[in-house]
Amino acid sequence: MLLNKQKKNQNAKGNRLLITINVLGSAGPIRFVVNENELVAAVIETALKSYAREGRLPVLGSDIGAFLLYCPHRATDALSPWESIGSQGGARNFMLCRKPQPMKVKEADEAAETLNRNKGSGSWKAWFNKSIKISSH
């Protein structure tokens, strides 16, 4: 009878999932238990707090709006912060990444200039032919 009450309480709250979140640039994953009805934004917040509490590097900060959570089953699309973590069809492994920062016009011009400067004269074939001169005696 006690077991039935526990199952009913669990179903009322939703199932709990042990999830693994890999943080790009970190040495190992973070694991914690969440409710399957938990929003992705709350999961990101919990992951950032756990990451900071463990003193991991690189330091990520606590701005949940600066991060995206990816699921390997959804290809390259990041999860919406407003969907539940359990809506991923039983997925338990996720990847936490910083949102890409848009490049400013000045930075883009500098990057293009650097690329042109490094290009040099000629292609890699010309460089290769200059490097491997075979002399005949």
Rank of each mutant, 00 (worst) to 15 (best):
T114C: 06
E110S: 06
L18C: 08
T46R: 14
A52K: 09
L2P: 07
E54R: 15
K106F: 07
D63M: 00
N35H: 05
K104G: 14
S80G: 06
A27Q: 12
T20Q: 08
G86L: 00
E113A: 11
A111Y: 10
K13R: 08
K5P: 06
T46C: 05
R31S: 13
I19V: 14
N22K: 13
A78M: 05
R56P: 00
C97Y: 03
R56G: 01
L18D: 12
L24H: 12
V43D: 01
D63C: 01
K106M: 08
A111Q: 15
D77K: 13
A126Y: 06
N35Q: 04
L2C: 05
C71Q: 06
N35Y: 02
L24N: 14
G120P: 06
A126I: 02
P58N: 03
R74H: 13
Y70R: 00
Q6G: 04
N4R: 09
K125C: 07
Q88V: 10
E38Q: 14
M95Q: 13
T76G: 08
L24A: 14
S50V: 11
C97E: 13
N129A: 05
S26V: 05
K99G: 00
R53N: 12
G61F: 02
T114A: 13
V59S: 14
L17F: 07
L39E: 12
I44P: 02
K104A: 12
A27F: 11
P72K: 08
A42S: 13
W82C: 05
A126E: 15
G61Y: 03
A42F: 07
N15Q: 07
N118L: 10
C71D: 10
M1C: 11
R117L: 14
Q10C: 07
S131C: 04
D109T: 09
I44E: 04
G120R: 04
K7D: 13
D63Y: 01
W127E: 08
